[in-house]
Design a protein around this nucleic acid. Structure first.
Lengths: 231, 231
DNA sequence: TTATAATGTAATCTC
DNA sequence: GAGATTACATTATT
């Protein structure tokens, strides 16, 4: 084992600075050497989302606010003491481990960034398993088993891709499957990415619209007020 | 939609033509979703870093045309100009800026540093003039003449606030809206700040976790190496 | 300089 | 698909 490998490890797992050009070999190395030892503390009482799911996600919060009576008495129920566990030191130990999915994460699955660039046909090996991301039942099994591990590496669109997507968006913010497909081909992206992009883009547009509306209302109000004060 | 075949959109030849010929109905649809035509994004999206420009364009065209020669000989009609609408630098005048209350120029209440201290029972919301206070005169210049208007002043949490936040984090790193709200009230912070704090806190935890993992791997490797050398 | 608050956005989950 | 939330990469402030 050479120091070279080690330094690659550093980049991959630790610094995560290695966003492009990680060879599959490196990954394999990481897996072999690293995985067995890496399961940290927390015996994974609760891995994942599946067995735990939303309610348990906030189990702690439930516990904390359980004392709360009524909709809104005063701040009586949420005392600092209870948070700090000063009143019942033992209570916290009763709680199961905090929900921290990344603690269970396998190193090989993390910190890989997909650079989606039309020029650089760099499809990282992540795309190989991208079949397992596809919307099959197996996928949901996997995700419920551990959504975090299954999370798709963040795609980094190139500026060219963005520009084109934006251009299309201006004309049609709800592209049908055919357009998305075609865009995908053109831009060397999965159609999935296109779809998500448009969803997020619509959300962004809506948000900004809402905000500007709010600002307008606010300004009108303050104008009213100032003009009244001037009288 | 209209009689225009939208799938042609992708063939960027047609794009600019399309923009000229999109029927009012299509536009209406677009507008309803959000906007005064077109794109809030350019100015708003990012502050300082965006400002994309010349080199980017250049690079873009370079890469794309490289593609044309190479692996993908087809699609001769893929011009950046048409995509970017350089031939038509149109109405991009608008827009809705992101909602940044702290940016509002309300004479008496702007440009102050946010000091978040639960002890002092200071309400941080910049909106509330009476309760905010400025720290130093230098602060007021920073944002007025600065190069980056619109960024929220960095919040300085008090040690008490931190302590409580940390305590809650230990129990539940994913507080739901109710808890966040309650924390906000307790600590005299915006709920937003709480949420951001937890996000950053999770990121930090994850980072440190990654580091420890790395250290373990590293130790294992060096152990392997030394034991081999001993042979 | 480091630590971390703030930002933008891709990905995910819920409905 | 909308809306809310999360993860993640980055920027910027102290």
């Amino acid at each position: 084992m050479s120091s070279i490998n080690l330094s690659k490890l550093v980049q991959l797992d630790y610094l995560s600075a290695l966003r492009d050009s990680v060879s599959p070999e490196d990954n394999r190395l990481l897996l072999q050497v690293g995985t067995p030892h890496l399961d940290p503390e927390l015996p994974a009482v609760q891995g994942p989302h599946a067995e735990i799911a939303p309610e348990d996600l906030q189990m702690a919060s439930v516990t904390v606010s359980a004392h709360q009576n009524g909709p809104m008495p005063r701040q009586s129920a949420f005392t600092i003491d209870s948070i700090l566990g000063l009143d019942r030191p033992d209570q916290r130990t009763v709680l199961s481990a905090p929900y921290r999915p990344w603690t269970d994460m396998k190193p090989a699955c993390q910190n890989r960034r997909v650079v989606a660039d039309s020029d650089a046909s760099v499809d990282l090996r992540v795309n190989e398993d991208s079949k397992s991301y596809s919307k099959s039942p197996a996928d949901s099994y996997r995700r419920t088993l551990n959504w975090y591990i299954g999370r798709r590496p963040r795609t980094a669109f190139s500026s060219v891709q963005i520009k084109i997507l934006e251009s299309v968006f201006q004309v049609n913010s709800y592209p049908g499957i055919d357009i998305r497909e075609e865009l995908a081909k053109k831009l060397h992206l999965d159609e999935d990415r296109i779809q998500i992009w448009f969803q997020n883009r619509r959300a962004k547009l809506k948000r900004s619209h809402r905000e500007s509306q709010f600002l307008m209302v606010k300004n009108v109000l303050s104008d009213l007020q100032t003009s009244r004060e001037e009288r």
